[in-house]
Design a protein around this nucleic acid. Structure first.
Lengths: 169, 169
DNA sequence: GTTCCGCTGGTCAATCTGTACAGCAGCAGG
DNA sequence: CCTGCTGCTGTACAGATTGACCAGCGGAAC
């Protein structure tokens, strides 16, 4: 059963999930098209149980949606890159706003370490990547950018192993 | 209409999507729970059209699934970090296999540039991150690792702006 | 002109959903 | 021991949705 807890160290709200929650999430991840009824059959529990678990998982924020997963490569953007940006003092907010307007910026984080920001880019080709980088970097406030082009993706974004680990407890 | 094309430069299969496809994906991303019937009402087209479009988008790989989106923070892993790894020559495959077994590694890419690999990690706390990094790096073949902790995430992983751009054409 | 293809608007049976209910079991508190 | 609470089960119901069809229509290509 998913239960809201308060982390003893940080006071953040976390949610403890049990084995059934874990199996449910894993099942949904593997076969997203099945409905509540079919899921209850697979898991060997009553339909109402699955419904209640799902409602709770969404209410607690563990599951934040079932949006379609779109493959940028299939859309014509097969090149992925990560850019580390160095930002001029005090320009952070402007840069964030700028990057948010660039469709090819799929993700942006502010980080500790050598750079100040890390963003994930896609482009139509290696040549097109230059255009994207110019668009990203062509903004006052960005001092320097270093880009790493993704060649292979041995582990695509995943969550199931973590869910299973979290469900162990 | 989503149509398979062959990219003139690379020979890769890409898919051109039209405005209706774009609206459909955007709609599904915004309100994932609506069904085909409701979507057809919102888009002002026949139900069969939406069904056909969806089938085609999935067949062409543009939409690769509707899996649940799980928030690691809600599961008790509020700390995200990116680690750049330098790999000893010829150890790539072993390192990939090792990292794939670590649940806290959500994503792994091999890249050009200073490092050889870039991976996304989560941890229960900053202190716990040390444990995760030790687990990741404690493997022969990894020469050096540099980690950037994520402080803020101004642009969460998104795809809609790109879909809208792709749908313009 | 003819053919192909996609969109429309309609139907059909089968299934699923949301909701509700009573019964039962485990657990904590008194 | 009894009580109250919570969660799971099995069931029921009306209403909505799904997948599958079909004939007709229009635009684009040959």
């Amino acid at each position: 059963m998913a239960v809201r807890l308060v982390h003893p160290d940080h006071g953040e709200t976390v949610v403890a999930i049990d084995h059934l929650d874990g199996r449910l999430i894993t099942l949904l991840a593997r076969e997203p098209r099945i409905g509540v009824l079919e899921a209850s059959r697979r898991l060997g529990v009553a339909r109402g149980t699955v419904q209640a678990r799902l409602d709770r998982l969404q209410a607690t924020g563990v599951i934040c949606g079932f949006g379609p997963q779109v493959d940028p490569a299939a859309l014509g953007y097969p090149v992925t890159a990560f850019a580390t940006l160095e930002i001029k003092q005090g320009q952070g907010a402007d840069v964030r706003g700028h990057l948010a307007t660039v469709p090819e910026v799929l993700e942006l984080h502010t980080t500790t370490g050598h750079g100040d920001m890390l963003c994930r880019l896609v482009a139509r080709s290696n040549a097109d990547l230059q255009r994207v980088i110019d668009k990203v970097v062509g903004f006052e406030g960005i001092v320097r950018a270093s880009t790493a082009i993704v060649m292979e993706n041995p582990v695509p974004l995943r969550i199931i192993p973590l869910v299973e680990q979290a469900a162990q407890e």
